[in-house]
Design a binder for these strands. Structure first.
Lengths: 196, 196, 196, 196
DNA sequence: GATGAATGAGCCTTCATTCAT
DNA sequence: TATGAATGAAGGCTCATTCAT
């Protein structure tokens, strides 16, 4: 258990969609098994528990996201460019893996303290570190205004970006690119005109 | 059922705390009844169902919040001043009624489409209208930059403000006032320095 | 939960009979509930778990048995008389509460180390103490032969007496009294004739 | 199925250890297969069912034990000597094959009436016959006291001896030999001193 | 012989809800 | 207004067993 068979993958795909739509606790093992065309008990041939399915979804998503963030943080360019890239990557992730993001946003709060999900807190801390580095470097180099508590700034930005997953619908009037553009504009220059 | 007896109020108070902490579906009727010192079946003398308790909590909170927003939107001053006041009121609400806000943030998404909870969508729409009015008026009067989609701006702001309820802890290094101040600073002028 | 209602008592009585006949793990909650005329879930209104039913049966039985043993051990007479009375009481218990004894004999070994069943080991130790006191006092006063390890003697006696529950059937050719008589005769004088 | 391959033997050895330690119903086919390094389904290439494994363990043990008892019963010497030898052999068996004895003691009661396990009752009856012969011959020849019901005597002795398997631990203060010695001393002469 | 996948029946337990007293 | 007892539906999970490959 842990290697990826076809059924395993199929179950993960189904579970991801269902859990994103209904929430983890409202999604039953039977729901998942039904869609996979097997009996609910048979699911335990592939996963040790319902929780293990969730764990795998979250762990995979966190791993991918964190990897991308690490890569961006280690890349060249200014702090401002790197912060922009972090934000752009987040918007892109929301467009490409909305179910993962939704699950992460919905279930992570409660789960963080549960045994077996310690990696969530670790990952969140590492992400905060990576983003914060850019903000603080930007403030130190005089690119970012330093009147704002950098920790607050990070959380404001993080919450704004990830929350869009709950209402952003690709195919509507916006794309990940236009969302990034709008948000970065607002974040960079604020709402007020020069005269305002 | 609907008149306010002491027990009713007590039950609402307990339910609010419990649901905010554990989530609606993870809070059982027995949990609530236990803390109220009655048996779970007895709770049905005061409320028609578990859902009815949640309805009452959400309805009351939405009513108060909407009233305040209506008042602010109808008050004198510039669009910018009114938007600032809306934001300040939200931060104040988070400080004073965190459990209500948490429940609203956590449960509203799924509930919105459920029968009996239509008022949630109505209220959300009205709130969007009130806030949007200020943003658009600000853009029209040249106080706010108009390169940003006002609907996006509204949602960015709304999500940022309300999301703080999940990590803001009064008694720490920030108060509602300092949160407002930091956020308004960021929102007004953006992160970049003039040279940046 | 813990006070004795009628249903509670009825459930205990049914569970005792079933568990004695089939064993604890082979007896299902449904079996018990069915005989009580309720749904299996309703059993949880009276007991916290299936294990709690077993606990109550074993605890009650151990308490009664231990009390009787304490009383006998504290009574007047010689060590020999008291040992005889302990044995006679055990045979009487087997006659009157065979189901309790059977459960105790069958399930106690595994359960002893389980959380919630620590009282079993404590009780067993106290019983060994009480019986051993008589044997050792008898050896010291010269009534009992001292060539036998008293701890072994205790276990030989204990096992012999309690094991009879698996084949002794009241209404057959023996009663508790005749079993006692036969066993005490054998225990006192041994199998060999004087000439043997 | 029935011929002895290596895997078969290996499975029997593992099953014996596991069933002795946890009990038959608490030992799963998977437990056994895991330790054998195969999947649980593969076990069915060697045995028709979980029950068949138990059957083979019990049948083999009963056969060996019965053979030894037949040999002793047919040997020369007095009835007393033969009864002593039967007892000594039992203690030796407990020392050498404790798992077999434990399984026999634990599972035989319930199984005796099950289809496929009729041999258990047959064997038990034959053993009773062999032991009883010695006891009755001893009583008839005046070596054993005849005030005790010989059937009771047999069961008292049998239960005492076999029950020791649950607490006798080789390597402690006793060996099979010292257990035999102590028990035979008690059985022959009883607990009372001549004056007692 | 062994694997890997699945079955099907059953297990203990939870929980919102009902209702006679 | 409570209680106490029960319902009924469901939930996560276990396990002996089967069978195509």
């Amino acid at each position: 258990m842990g290697d990826g068979s076809e059924r395993r993958d199929q179950i993960i795909v189904i579970a991801r969609r269902l859990i994103a739509a209904r929430g983890y606790s409202a999604t039953t093992v039977r729901d998942i098994a039904d869609e996979a065309g097997i009996l609910s008990g048979s699911l335990y041939h592939h996963f040790a528990s319902k929780e293990a399915v969730l764990q795998e979804i979250l762990h995979g998503f966190q791993h991918d996201t964190l990897s991308a963030f690490e890569r961006i943080a280690a890349s060249g360019g200014s702090a401002r460019e790197r912060l922009d890239q972090l934000i752009e990557h987040a918007f892109l992730t929301i467009e490409q893996r909305p179910d993962d993001v939704r699950i992460y946003q919905n279930e992570t709060g409660f789960l963080m303290t549960q045994p077996g999900f310690e990696f969530l807190a670790d990952g969140a801390a590492r992400i905060e570190e990576l983003w914060l580095d850019q903000i603080m470097e930007g403030q130190e180099t005089g690119v970012f205004r330093d009147t704002i508590d950098p920790r607050l700034a990070f959380r404001f930005i993080r919450d704004t970006v990830w929350s869009t997953v709950f209402w952003f619908r690709p195919g509507g009037s916006h794309t990940a690119a236009s969302m990034s553009e709008n948000y970065l504009d607002l974040l960079h220059h604020g709402m007020l005109t020069v005269e305002g």
